[in-house]
């Protein structure tokens, strides 16, 4: 028991775990929609696109969360609008917007006035989470999960058959913009802990893993959230005992779980592991 409980006697480890629970539950549930809307690349790009906002906030002394939010809102709207321009597909619109914003961020970050802690913006600082960070994370998590609850039927119909969703009362533009906005909000929660470069792991890996093992959306979301939290705790143990970087350890466990599930589902050929239709 000592080995299991030891890490949690430290305040910074408790806060890191709390932060990961918030990020994990949000990322797991939201990730299911990211996977079905094929927005993994957009999610990663949104994280990168917040860099200029973060750098500007750091330079001006604003809270990072404000700078990141401003950057992400600009990026989310630009991607949503650009994707609707005829002749520009979703991938291309993301690439155009993100290279522009990321370039701007790098330009600002490389200026002589950039603060020394800029590395944390890229790689995260899970063990440095403050109580205020945890409260901010809790508020954003409540917002994202509440919005997903309200949007559930819209997202379900549009994701099922985009081309005919309107005949059913579906609104593809609403679903797209709302989903991108929520990805942006979730990224804001996660980026402070996991960093700009690793945040996508918790938004995509748990949902991709759960998809291999479930056949219904509700169990998939529950499993994805559980896996994300478990991987968060596992990553912190790894970091504590193996003295590895916390954010990278969490991302590593997340990817490891996916690989294990993939192999298991391939070995079981989808019949032994996945529940039968009547049991699901």
């Amino acid at each position: 028991m000592h080995v299991l409980l030891d890490p949690w006697s430290l305040g910074f480890m408790q806060r890191a775990l709390l932060e990961l629970v918030l990020v994990g539950v949000t990322g797991g549930v939201l990730g299911c929609w990211i996977v079905f809307y094929e927005l993994s690349y957009s999610a990663e790009s949104l994280a990168h696109s917040m860099l200029p906002g973060l750098v500007v906030a750091a330079l001006l002394g604003f809270p990072l969360v404000l700078g990141g939010a401003a950057g992400l809102i600009v990026a989310a709207v630009a991607v949503g609008v650009a994707a609707r321009v005829p002749g520009i597909d979703r991938d291309t619109s993301v690439a155009i917007v993100i290279t522009t914003l990321f370039g701007l961020g790098v330009m600002l970050a490389l200026s002589p006035a950039s603060p020394p802690g800029i590395g944390d913006l890229l790689f995260g600082n899970l063990l440095g989470a403050s109580a205020a960070d945890v409260w901010t994370g809790a508020a954003l998590a409540a917002f994202v999960l509440g919005a997903l609850r309200l949007l559930h039927r819209q997202l379900l119909v549009v994701g099922f058959d985009r081309s005919t969703a309107r005949a059913l009362g579906g609104r593809p533009l609403l679903a797209d913009v709302a989903l991108l906005g929520l990805i942006a909000a979730a990224t804001l929660i996660a980026v402070q802990g996991l960093g700009n470069l690793l945040v996508v792991a918790i938004l995509v890996a748990p949902a991709a893993t759960a998809r291999l093992l479930t056949r219904r959306l509700a169990p998939m979301m529950t499993l994805a959230a559980t896996l994300a939290v478990a991987a968060g705790a596992g990553g912190l143990y790894l970091s504590y005992y193996a003295d590895t970087a916390a954010g990278a350890s969490v991302a590593g466990v997340l990817v490891g779980l996916y690989v294990v599930a993939r192999i298991a589902s391939a070995l079981g050929a989808g019949s032994k592991l996945a529940p039968s239709p009547s049991a699901a």
């Binding site: 039927r153 379900l156 994701g159 099922f160 009362g169 579906g170 219904r216 998939m220």
Partner: peptide, 23 residues
């Protein structure tokens, strides 16, 4: 329609409520 979507026949039938019950 997406055949890899994690929905039951009932879930799909219920999509018909979107135009009648506010989303």
């Amino acid at each position: 329609s997406r055949l890899d979507y994690p929905v039951s026949a009932l879930d799909v039938a219920l999509m018909g409520t979107l135009s009648r019950v506010p989303w």
